[in-house]
Design a protein around this nucleic acid. Sequence first.
DNA 1: CTAATGACCATTA
DNA 2: ATAATGGCCATTA
Length: 98
Amino acid sequence: MKNFNSKVYEVTKKIPRGKVSTYGLIACLAENCRAPRAVGNALNKNFSPDIPCHRVIRSNGSIGGYRGNLLKKIRKLKSEGVIIKNNRIDLKKFGWPS
DNA sequence: CTAATGACCATTA
DNA sequence: ATAATGGCCATTA
């Protein structure tokens, strides 16, 4: 892969520890602001250990999904200092970019 | 080539 | 507050 996916991976890797980003935002930073689906799709199919896809959540603050195990995603986020409340994350505080 | 799929988003009811 | 609808995009079959 060379275009969209790579870009998505790059951006996702840039997410600092302890922060989270959204699919839509990644789409914007990658190429197209209107391809949040493609972002999720790419992450789903190209699930790589080098990519902190657990830091990617939905725009409304909900956790979203995870291919392996959603619980693991939540646990990792909590481990990084992200506060998850009622399956929601405060994007105002942990959203990236700020 | 076309059709179907999905870890989505914003709007509307 | 939740539920349903339409639209948008890249990838895969």
